[in-house]
Amino acid sequence: MAELVAAAGVPHTPVFPALARGDSEQGRDIAARYAAVSGVLAEADADVVLVLTCDHINTFFLDAWPTFAVVAADSVTGPSDEVPGVERTELAAAGAVGKHLHERLLRQQFDPVLSQHCTVDHSISVPLHFLNPAGLPVVPVFVNGMVGPLPSAARCRAFGDAIRNAVADLPPMRVAVVASGSFSLEVGGPRMDRGKLYGIPDPGWAARVSEHLAAGRLDQLADEATTAQIERAGSVSGELLPWIAMAEAARDLPLSVLDHRPGEGHAFAAWS
């Protein structure tokens, strides 16, 4: 029986890797915030990492858009989009674990798309850049937080619970679950800040999400994460949904890190 040994959530902002490498106060700050989460994961000594996130219409397109998808391949290539300072490369993936996960999800009334070959975008490459220096094999898992209609928060919690059961059913190994994304973020739409290509329409919501996560209030979080609230929080704020699935999967783990600052649309968090 496998053990879920750690969980984490981080933003996947494409400029962060280059920023963190640079010699600036802001860069050192970003690097330290990711390092706090990375340290918890390293301490947990996982064998495999499940990454729960939202594809930004790069891995998949609207010709066949999945609500949930699991990747079962021995490698994936990414990033397929622009991440300054991060070269497109082949990432080790845990194909057998992905296959097991897909099969066990089917037995629990979830029917995710199974991808056996794909590229991944910054939603996978940025968290791994910071959190997986050892190059542990990963299993990308996609939740639709991007193209309406989105799955409900309650459905994403149930998905997390099913992942938790599927992990428990794996052969003996140590598993970490990482979510990536923001709680309030506008990309490409009219609520971006003047002169910028992003905005944070609802920082109050991001703060509230962070408080609920810190306190383990998943019932309240799921109740409040309505379609209308997600819409108010920005064009990609459905990225909260994979966080909710991760938090449910890791519900037995105590909190180690919850780093959110007022005004931000995201948080850095770890449980182990």
Partner: peptide, 15 residues
């Protein structure tokens, strides 16, 4: 960035 600011939030069909 300048042009999109004049659109009305939520008008997009796909969001």
């Amino acid at each position: 960035a300048e042009r999109i600011r004049t659109a009305r939030p939520g008008n997009g069909e796909q969001k």
